[in-house]
């Protein structure tokens, strides 16, 4: 059992997927921090009230480290923001990848400590992933690090430790499952009319548009069905782990069925649709995109390579359906 556990975390694979997660995460955060700048909210979010901002952190018993070192004024806020922008960009570029991830996580944590009310669940999730990336070889390919080390953007072609990718998968599973089991509100249940989605889409704080029309059929029934699917999807999400962390011993009927039909993709597909639906109906900022950039972690690099080959083969066919000659 212990050996099985140690071997689970000793797997190795090509570095492509982790690089994709690094680039995606870096870009999403870069876009978010640039949005803060574009909206003119840098000083608002990260200076204290004495300097025209919203933070009260300079007056609490545990003053954030950033305020202790650099003060709570506008220059300090701008420096923090510059650090966030720079490190998210260098993470995406893969320049000092691990250090960038670590520094970004620490600065991001300070931004949260300065104004906790502005920090959302997605921010914590992304910091968790940054912590994983900081301990990984996420810059082994498609990065400036790879160019500097090997002279080629594709790196040295050596496999890397796979555990960071599996930890990201585990993090996603934990998030979905615990989000599901904590949905205690009656509106998530049949005795509450499976009305949660309708209620949420009519919450002024989250709705992107006005959704009062959803009260009419068949739209209302569709929201009820979506609630049922969401609950089923989240409560049963741990079955995905059977694929990524196969238990010891010969597989039983269920595992064989899961493996034969690659059924874990049903949960992953539902999750992706769920986030796309959120992106189009709710004003949750980077939440759906921050989640979706982690989704490549579900793919083994070999699966990704096979998909890429298949897609390239399909696209490079002639109009008659005859594959183009290989170069």
């Amino acid at each position: 059992m212990i050996r099985w556990w140690v071997e689970l975390w000793d797997r190795r694979e090509a570095p492509t997927i982790l690089a994709i997660v690094r680039i995606g995460l870096g870009l999403v955060l870069f876009a978010d921090f640039m949005t803060v700048w574009g909206l003119g909210l840098v000083e608002t979010l990260w200076t204290d009230t004495a300097h025209g901002g919203l933070s009260q952190a300079s007056g609490i018993s545990r003053v954030p480290l950033w305020y202790q070192l650099f003060g709570a004024g506008p220059a300090s806020a701008r420096a923090l923001h510059a650090g966030l922008v720079l490190t998210s960009f260098t993470l995406a570029l893969g320049w000092f990848s691990r250090s960038s991830a670590l520094l970004l996580m620490l600065l991001y944590a300070q931004s949260s400590a300065i104004l906790p009310e502005a920090d959302r669940a997605i921010d914590m999730l992304l910091r968790n992933v940054l912590m994983i990336l900081a301990c990984s070889r996420c810059g082994a390919i498609w990065s400036l690090d790879a160019i500097v080390r090997t002279g080629h953007v594709s790196g040295d072609g050596q496999p890397i430790e796979a555990w960071p990718r599996y930890l990201i998968v585990l993090q996603l599973v934990v998030m979905y499952f615990t989000a599901g089991v904590q949905k205690y509100g009656q509106h998530w249940w049949p005795w509450g009319g499976n009305s949660a989605l309708y209620v949420i889409l009519n919450d002024w704080a989250y709705a992107k548009y006005r959704f009062g029309w959803l009260i009419h059929q068949p739209f209302y029934a569709f929201t009820q069905l979506s609630v049922f699917v969401t609950m089923f999807f989240q409560w049963t999400y741990p079955v995905v782990l059977l694929h990524y962390f196969p238990p010891r011993g010969a597989p039983g009927i269920f595992r064989r069925w899961m493996a034969r039909w690659q059924a874990h993709w049903v949960w992953i597909g539902v999750g992706a649709l769920f986030h796309l639906a959120i992106a189009s109906t709710m004003a949750l900022g980077i939440f759906p995109w921050g989640m979706l950039v982690l989704y490549p972690a579900y793919l083994h690099p070999d699966e990704a390579a096979a998909l890429f080959r298949r897609a390239r083969g399909r696209w490079s066919r002639t109009p008659d359906g005859i594959p183009s000659p290989s170069p």
Binding site: M105, R127, T178, A179, Q182, H187, W188, D203
Partner: peptide, 19 residues
Amino acid sequence: RLTGTGQGWALFANPDTHP
């Protein structure tokens, strides 16, 4: 606190009928 990491995913646990 230093790393800003953690867990806690009670997302929309109790939808608000009085928003």
